[in-house]
Design a protein around this nucleic acid. Structure first.
Length: 124
DNA sequence: TCCTTGACTCAGA
DNA sequence: CTCTGAGCCAAGG
């Protein structure tokens, strides 16, 4: 199975993730890695560890996100919807298509067209 | 108390 | 382009 770790203070980290996700524009997507990269490594976490596990912490945060968050705009680095239990993946794809995001024959999104980089966005 | 279960990414072949 | 392996914690039943 895949290795796993949790951030020092999960609730605090999750809140940071939700802030970023809330800024993703409609009709655009963002990757777990990009979101993690937009958030500084928590105290006590070295950069190499953060780079390796940050994306999964983001996923963990989305698993518990508020209903009003556009969580469906977060996809993996391959431009695809990460598999998980339940109807989540189905609803995610439907919502994205409803916003105009296109999937190719292999269920992947063209990130060069739809990816939104949180690092290039000014915020208060 | 032990065992199961979790929205990932990148380098190398 | 596709497929593999490595990274190695914590909460709940």
């Amino acid at each position: 199975m895949t290795p796993f770790v949790s951030p020092p203070d999960p609730p605090a980290y999750h809140a940071r993730v939700w802030e970023v996700v809330a800024r993703i524009p409609e009709g655009r997507v963002c990757t777990y890695g990009a979101i993690a990269a937009a958030i500084p490594a928590p105290p006590g976490v070295d950069d190499s560890t953060y780079r390796a596990f940050g994306p999964r912490w983001v996923g963990s945060a989305l698993a518990r996100c508020p209903e009003d968050l556009p969580w469906h705009r977060v996809v993996n680095a391959q431009g695809g919807i990460s598999p998980r239990r339940g109807e989540g993946p189905i609803r995610q794809r439907e919502r994205l298509q409803a916003e105009g995001v296109l999937f190719d024959e292999r269920d992947r999104i063209d990130l060069s067209r739809f990816e939104w980089d949180p690092g290039k966005e000014a915020h208060a």
